[in-house]
C-alpha cells in the first residue's frame, strides 16, 4: 500500500472534478441518499404489518437492517464504481488505466470515485448505531470487536461481488443487470432475517452459496447471543471474516484471469 498516497491524489482530483457543478452534485447526493432511505423504509413498512419479521422483533430487525445498510453503503462508496468497467471495456478506455504504473483495479475504483455515495454511508451508520443502541447486547470484548468488524467484512463481501460482477464484462459486456441481481439483490436479501426465506434452494443458495448469511444475519445473532432458529451451528455466527477472505480470493483470482481477456476494442 505504498501507493496509497497516489490513490488519494487521484480520488481528490475526482472529487474536485465532480463537485465543480455544485447544483448537479447536490441533486445527485440527495437522490442517492433518498433512494437508499427508501430501501430502509421498506423494511420498516413491512415490519409494521405484524410487528415482527421472520420471528424477530424490532431490535433484531433494526440491527440486521442497519448492518446490511452500512456494509452495502461502504461497499458501494468504495467498490460500486467498479460498474464503470463495462463502459471502459466497451469503449476501450480501460487502456488508459493499464498504461499507468499502478494497479488497474485500484485505479478503476479511484478514478471513478463517486463522492455522492458517501451520504449513504452516514445514513447506514445512523441506522446501525440505532440498532446497537436499541438491541439488548451483552457487551464483552469479542462482541465489541465483532460489532466493529462486521460492517467492514460485509462491505468486503459486497465489494467482491461488485468486482466479480464488473469483471464478467471482460467476457460478456452486456451483463450489467445480472450483476445487479447479486449486488442490489444481495442488499435486499441481507436486510431481512434469514428465517424469512424458508429452507428452499433460493434461500440456501443466497445465504450460504454466495455467503449473504454472513453479512448481517449471523453476526447479528452473535451480537444478540441468540441461536439460529433454523439450526445453523452457533460457531458459524462468528465466521464472517473468514467468508470475506474467501470472497477476496475469489474476486482477485477472477480479476486476474479476466484482465487477460481484455480485448481493447473500440479504436
Amino acid at each position: 500500500m505504498a501507493d496509497l498516497g497516489v490513490y488519494l491524489h487521484i480520488v481528490r482530483a475526482q472529487i474536485r472534478s465532480q463537485t465543480q457543478y455544485r447544483m448537479s452534485f447536490a441533486i445527485d447526493l440527495a437522490a442517492s441518499t433518498l433512494i437508499s432511505a427508501l430501501d430502509i423504509a421498506t423494511v420498516f413498512v413491512l415490519f409494521s404489518v405484524s410487528g415482527g419479521l421472520g420471528g424477530f422483533g424490532g431490535p433484531a430487525v433494526l440491527l440486521i437492517a442497519g448492518l446490511s445498510a452500512l456494509a452495502f453503503a461502504i461497499a458501494d462508496a468504495v467498490f460500486g464504481n467498479a460498474e464503470r468497467l463495462r463502459e471502459l471495456v466497451r469503449s476501450g478506455g480501460f487502456d488508459a488505466l493499464l498504461l499507468r504504473p499502478l494497479s488497474a483495479l485500484a485505479q478503476l475504483l479511484a478514478v471513478n470515485f463517486a463522492p455522492r455515495r458517501v451520504g449513504r454511508v452516514v445514513q447506514g451508520m445512523v441506522v446501525y448505531g440505532l440498532g446497537l443502541a436499541v438491541a439488548d447486547i451483552d457487551w464483552n470484548p469479542a462482541r465489541v470487536l465483532l460489532a466493529v468488524v462486521t460492517p467492514l467484512t460485509g462491505a468486503v463481501m459486497f465489494g467482491c461481488l461488485f468486482i466479480i460482477g464488473a469483471t464478467v464484462a471482460f467476457w460478456w459486456v452486456e451483463s450489467g443487470e445480472v450483476a445487479n441481481a447479486f449486488t442490489y439483490g444481495g442488499r435486499d436479501f441481507t436486510s431481512y432475517p434469514l428465517t424469512m426465506y424458508g429452507g428452499g434452494f433460493f434461500g440456501r443458495f443466497f445465504a450460504f452459496g454466495i455467503g449473504f448469511a454472513f453479512v448481517a444475519y449471523l453476526p447479528a445473532l452473535a451480537l444478540l447471543d441468540r441461536p439460529d432458529p433454523m439450526g445453523v451451528p452457533d460457531w458459524l455466527r462468528w465466521c464472517s471474516p473468514l467468508t470475506a477472505m474467501i470472497a477476496v480470493l475469489a474476486a482477485t483470482a477472477l480479476w486476474r484471469v479476466g484482465i487477460r481477456h481484455y480485448r481493447s476494442t473500440g479504436s
Partner: peptide, 28 residues
Amino acid sequence: GVVFGQRSQLWWDLPLAESFSLLRHIYK
C-alpha cells in the same frame, strides 16, 4: 510513454496543469 490518439491519459474535467501534477504523483 504512450500516446494512443483516441484514448486520453488526461483528466477530462480538470485543467491540463492539474493532470500534469497528478501524473507526477502517479509516476513518482
